[in-house]
Design a protein around this nucleic acid. Structure first.
Lengths: 139, 139
DNA sequence: AAGTTGTTTAGAACAGTTCTAAAAACTGCA
DNA sequence: TGCAGTTTTTAGAACTGTTCTAAACAACTT
């Protein structure tokens, strides 16, 4: 008799495996926190704090490793909006961000209604990768 | 008889004074490096390296202080494009950026031809501050 | 020139992130 | 199921970029 594998662990294991990552205890725990509810924005610290509540031991170093791996695997997107802190977004589709200063709150908005027109061509020897629109708002 | 005040020192002194900042040796030296040629992008480290060549002693702490003060005074604009490093742009007018990954090179482009349409209204209780468009390109 | 205030400085401190090397855990195979 | 081979996790050190501290110094005022 194996352990209790009910719930969504198996789904996450499969997803991780599909991404070329071994489904370890800590990766599954992190994936669960990240992906089981709707879209989220986390920092390494905030995710670490959250996963501690699940009683599965995960070190901060592992949180960093995992966030980078998930990002590299396309499971997360890194968002750079403030100096000295990286946000990770579980929404990897096309969208943009509101950034509320000085709180550091981040909100997605879909990009389907947004048009960015009149961009100059990329500098010589480079090709376009992504266009980020950050709408900075104040309280 | 005062020291040799020829050149542009006086202009920078006046500009600093106008911004509410005492025109100290190091602030004038930094202002000169920053503003005497065309528009520039610097980091604290790169500016520190440059100002050392002028033989006017400026500590790294002062470079940081000064960049922050210049930014607060509206003489510079801070650009956040990469985690763990702040860029400062002497161009404070409306414009956007190309960011060349992974070099970390930054290029301005004017915003007059660029239109960003269809943005959703700012979240409740906030008002728009600025819209940043970052075009990320790869080699 | 003296006093007052603001600025600079070296170095310590700090935040966020990555590295290291040893222990633990996953996986495939007998 | 047990074992070998490989990957992952971990605590803690290390590292990077930035800010802080408090003492020395420079700029302005009189």
């Amino acid at each position: 008799m194996g352990q209790d594998m009910s719930g969504t662990s198996l789904d996450f294991s499969a997803r991780l495996r599909a991404a070329g990552l071994r489904p370890t205890r800590q990766r599954v725990a992190l994936a669960r926190v990240l992906f089981e509810a709707g879209h989220r924005h986390v920092t390494a610290e905030s995710l670490h704090a959250e996963v501690k509540a699940t009683r599965i031991p995960v070190s901060l170093a592992t949180v960093y490793n995992t966030l980078n791996q998930f990002r590299d695997a396309g499971l997360l997107r890194e968002v750079v909006v403030a100096p000295g802190r990286s946000y990770f977004d579980t929404n990897t589709g096309h969208h943009h961000h509101f950034y509320v200063e000085p709180d550091g709150e981040l909100h997605d908005f879909p990009s389907d209604k947004v048009t960015v027109a009149g961009l100059p061509p990329p500098p010589k020897g480079t090709r376009l990768n992504r266009v980020d629109v950050i709408v900075r708002v104040k309280r």
